[in-house]
Lab assay of single mutants.
Amino acid sequence: MSIQHFRVALIPFFAAFCLPVFAHPETLVKVKDAEDQLGARVGYIELDLNSGKILESFRPEERFPMMSTFKVLLCGAVLSRVDAGQEQLGRRIHYSQNDLVEYSPVTEKHLTDGMTVRELCSAAITMSDNTAANLLLTTIGGPKELTAFLHNMGDHVTRLDRWEPELNEAIPNDERDTTMPAAMATTLRKLLTGELLTLASRQQLIDWMEADKVAGPLLRSALPAGWFIADKSGAGERGSRGIIAALGPDGKPSRIVVIYTTGSQATMDERNRQIAEIGASLIKHW
């Protein structure tokens, strides 16, 4: 067993022997301040990774656009098919120029040779490549099948209805392509620590998230040296922004954090800054 596999296998073990965790309302004060600064709703939840206990939450059962955070769930569904012998990570998928959609920095470079399922998941999570996500959605049967996968996990809230990039439209009061912070946090925890996926697939999923290259201005910008984070960000229309993450000190994750916002007129930089400040408060009061 590799060191990384050992780390993920012992996530519940280490967490069980940690000192009790206590909620700190100071972080919620910052979440509410972010709402004021952005002029928009902000949803927040913080779960203990081992027990699933909610440590703090704000608007945990209000719907927010998922945006690209759905790509972690998508690759979880792909990995479940791999575990069941219905898919192979090494299978190569070929596609054409007509398949390319807006923001496809990886797939646009491989029109000639195609990409493997493993490479597509890596591109979808680490670079948020939209064509990679659409190609992977095709392998599982489309958005409705991802929703069905989530329902089978016990998540009857999260739903995907459309493809990239239309799913980022974020129309107010439109339930399409949305989740709730509580539902997303619980589902992410199941994917990373539950028995739904094999140990190898859980490790692969967290490795992809740990290698995320496009979430630097968010929670990662607030992390002290030595902290662990595996995350996936999302951005959408109407001032929408979000991030889902597993993080913790001492090089291992111990909490799940989900943050979503929508309806702001603020710039992307300002949305990023507010999420980073929430992260800084979380870490300060850990």
Rank of each mutant, 00 (worst) to 15 (best):
L73M: 11
E195G: 14
G39Y: 10
R220S: 04
E61R: 13
G142Y: 02
R162P: 01
R81D: 05
S221R: 13
M127T: 13
W208L: 06
T187H: 05
G248M: 01
T107P: 01
E237N: 14
F228R: 07
K284Q: 13
F22D: 07
R59P: 00
D99N: 09
V29C: 12
V78K: 02
K232E: 00
Q37K: 15
G242H: 02
I283T: 09
D36N: 13
L188A: 07
F22K: 09
S264Q: 06
M180I: 12
E35A: 07
G39P: 05
E210K: 11
A77S: 10
G141M: 06
F149W: 14
G142Q: 04
A170C: 13
A222F: 08
F14A: 10
I243P: 00
S264E: 04
Y44T: 02
D99S: 10
M184P: 00
R92F: 10
G52A: 07
A225H: 14
A183Y: 10
L89T: 06
V78T: 07
F58G: 05
F14I: 13
T138G: 13
I243S: 02
S122D: 15
G52Q: 06
L111V: 14
R59A: 06
D33S: 10
V106H: 08
T131I: 01
V21Q: 05
T116K: 06
A77R: 09
T116A: 07
M153N: 10
I275T: 03
L79P: 00
L73T: 09
K109V: 12
L111G: 06
P105F: 05
R59T: 02
G141D: 07
P60Q: 13
E175A: 14
L79K: 00
G234V: 00
I278A: 02
G234I: 00
T131D: 01
I54H: 11
M67S: 10
I229C: 10
M67V: 10
V31R: 01
A123K: 02
G194A: 11
G279W: 03
R41I: 09
D161Y: 04
F22A: 10
A123I: 04
V29D: 14
P105M: 06
P143E: 05
D231H: 04
S104A: 08
V29I: 14
I229Q: 02
I45V: 15
T27N: 05
I259C: 08
W286Y: 07
R220F: 03
A9I: 12
T262N: 10
S51P: 03
S122Y: 14
A124E: 01
K71I: 00
G234A: 09
L223S: 07
Q97T: 13
S51C: 05
V257N: 01
I125D: 01
K284I: 11
E119M: 06
L136V: 08
I259S: 01
L73Q: 05
